[in-house]
Amino acid sequence: MSVRPSDARRGTSPWVPLLVVVAIGCAIMAPLNRQFLTASNGYVILASAGLLCVIGLAQVVVLSVGEFSLAIGGIGALSGVAMGYLLVERGAPLAVAVVVALAVGLAAGLVNGLLVAYSGVHGFVITLASGGAFTGLALGITETQPYNGLPEALTVFGTGRAGFVPYLAFATVALSLAAAAFFRWHRLGRLLLTVGGNREAAALSGLSPVRAVVAAHALSGLLAGAAGVMAAAQLHEANASVGAEWVITSFTVAIIGGTSLAGGVVSIGGLLFAGVILALIKDALVMLDVNPLWVTLTQGVLILAAVFLGRSSGWRAVRRPAAPRAVSLEGAAS
């Protein structure tokens, strides 16, 4: 009996169709609204996409190993609040506050990873609970009042721009390149993908699935922490409720980007385009005076569309001799 690799575990090599989607979207929008093709609107889209991508990246890292995290928003909020607390309440230097925020994210992720790997309780339950706990902790620290008056260096990073490119986007690109290199060339990245691709085979080949799961959650926490810092910089405040919608966002960006839900296949290039598409849609709906409430509906429709798109390209890949790679870098490099 043979089993054809199912569509779900195959993931897709989606960045080309996504590029087409972006181009078509822009072509439709440009004549509809003269404001659309302006530098300031480009900035709005990229600034929004920059944060979305890092949130998605935090999910991609856990998906790669065949797990997922519902705690990304909680970790992001906690990290941002930790930074805000140090800056505003303690007057700590910015660098120290940022490093601590990232460390908080890493530690929170590590806790998740250890619990998932060693407790035997499903990751859904662990991260659902811990995500709530982290958010609660952030709320407790802030007493629901956001920290305002963040240092200028941070807010300039959050909302400044070079031409139409937000400074924030440089951080996103740097993180994405690092993630792509990590998955393609790093020993640990290979470990995550291999365990995600076939846990049993990885174990029999002397790799440690437990280590992979712990590492994936820890790195995801680190990235969620980075997203928390970026969000605070962008909003000019550290807010405990910032991560409320991050979980669905993170899945949306990852899945549209072509990362496999079953593990073993990630696409960083696809992720970047997915982030841009999502930001583009939000922006277009605003420009067209559509009620922003519809954005959520659009997100849902997009996930479905991406799944069906992925399935058809999965079929193509079965027939086509040239293989999509496990990690596609092209998008990130362009």
């Binding site: 690799p5 575990r9 195959r10 993931g11 020993r187 290979r190 470990l191 993908l193 291999t194 691709g197 076939n198 049993e200 085979a201 990885a202 029999l204 080949s205 002397g206 790799l207 496999s260 073993g264 296949v265 293989a323 790679r325 496990a326």
Partner: peptide, 19 residues
């Protein structure tokens, strides 16, 4: 079931033991 990572490349599948 226990041998290959089907969605990965030949190089990746062979290389597991030497990373």
């Amino acid at each position: 079931g226990e041998g290959l990572i089907l969605s990965h490349s030949v190089a990746h599948n062979i290389g597991i033991t030497v990373w």
